[in-house]
Design a protein around this nucleic acid. Structure first.
Lengths: 246, 246
DNA sequence: GCCGTCCGTTGATTTCGATCAAGGTTACGA
DNA sequence: TCGTAACCTTGATCGAAATCAACGGACGGC
């Protein structure tokens, strides 16, 4: 299989085409994007970019999960971004990474070389408009995350994370999964702790507590089944009257 | 003074023109913006928009301070946005507010009616590009805030907030104020607590502690002088090697 | 098979910030 | 001038999560 064929095969299912920058591109523009596009793979735990490094590409997650992390001098770490398939990575107009970008699982990214992408963006207004929409969505997610970090209890934090993962896993954005939903927690206890602003011991204890109380069922270390999804949502502390907003 | 005159006078010093959406507008476009623009004033404590309400305008803060707040069912509140003069409010493409927007001080906003503004945005690509830049800046700020909420101690949180306020107060973005910098904390202890994910008692205690340790000097309840700015920065827990990034 | 490493769990104890409670100060209106 | 309400401070105590510590299971290499 040649590189070219590989690229085309990926492209058919590439979320870029469907949910990200090219959502409204015509064929000519898509051809230009194809020309500056390439794929990269990473292993779990591998750091893609270090904070402060030059970052000569932008891109989207095709498969797997990446995280953005901020670390203080003394080692305290806070995750500030969780990138699932179709999420965009990198900031147009700035070539320097502000955060460590780390592969949490086996990861495939679809990258665009920075300079030609930014050129294309200037010539193609709806790319900036689409990126604006995506960035506003990310800002909303960040603000919900801030409520979680600042005001929720450890138990509510865990429940909230499970709901977020379950929702992104089920088809359709923001869909409420059916009862009995099953999914894998894609993060280690430590990464989960960094997401939630907790220690890994507290994460472990609270997951055990939710299991003990029958809110979730564990299969192995990572597999999770939710017998009653509404019950889990109640544990998050969020408004239960459904996500009308966002 | 007629309304029209008032508008024009404000416009000369209106941050909209200089730092927000019209940064690169030509005269025709500016004239269009003028036509759909109006000013609104609010008193401290007044809620501008409630979460879930219809929001038929977008705009910028001209003078004073507004906050975005998220509240849980049981009353726990987290501030998720602090809007200083020149900051943009509202989300193009969504007419429903996601957060409570509250005036923290006497406040003047410059508003654009939603429908014509969004029309103008479609016709004028660099407005979307400018808004994208601003939104990315806000996202960066939100992520720094997440580190603060998730991993910093109460003392570090207070110090970080003081640095943020002092920097925005001094001329030039991200400038490091001179030693002896003096400014007013524009938030009540309660609003400060909602910003930092603390209780108002803890805020009060930590401010007293920083005063006791000579890091800051208080003048009245809100006035603050920083004798040694570098000393304050050390208290934030952030990298001391200066904001090379952002 | 055995060893070492990584990941996760659980227990004992400590600690930081929350909570409960009491006053103090300032501003403003009657 | 006094009274009151909003805002702030400080003290005593409590509790949730951090920290310190030990252990167990899964996996991979030798």
């Amino acid at each position: 299989m040649t590189d070219m064929t590989f690229t085309r095969i990926q492209c058919d299912s590439c979320p870029i085409r469907h949910r990200a920058v090219c959502a409204r591109c015509d064929d000519d523009e898509l051809a230009l994007l194809e020309a500056i596009k390439y794929y990269r793979s990473f292993e779990p735990g591998q750091t893609i970019v270090w904070s402060g490094d030059q970052m000569d590409f932008l891109g989207s997650v095709v498969e797997g999960i990446a995280t953005l992390n901020q670390t203080m001098e003394d080692g305290r770490t806070q995750m500030v971004g969780l990138l699932l398939p179709s999420d965009f990575v990198g900031r147009p107009g700035r070539g320097t990474a502000a955060y460590d970008t780390v592969a949490a699982t086996k990861l495939t990214m679809c990258c665009f070389r920075r300079a030609p992408f930014e050129e294309l963006m200037v010539r193609t207004p709806h790319i900036a408009q689409r990126l604006l929409e995506m960035t506003l969505d990310e800002l909303d997610a960040a603000r919900e995350w801030m409520l979680l970090l600042g005001r929720k209890t450890a138990r509510e934090k865990i429940a909230s994370l499970l709901v977020i993962i379950a929702r992104r896993n089920s088809t359709g954005t923001k869909a409420t999964p059916t009862d009995g939903a099953h999914f894998d927690l894609p993060l280690t206890r430590e990464a989960t702790a960094d997401y939630l602003g907790l220690t890994l011991e507290t994460v472990s204890r609270q997951i055990s507590a939710l299991k003990r109380d029958g809110v979730i069922v564990l299969e192995g270390k990572r597999g999770i089944t939710v017998p009653d999804f509404h019950r889990l949502i109640e544990e998050t502390g969020d408004d239960t009257d459904g996500g009308v907003l966002v």
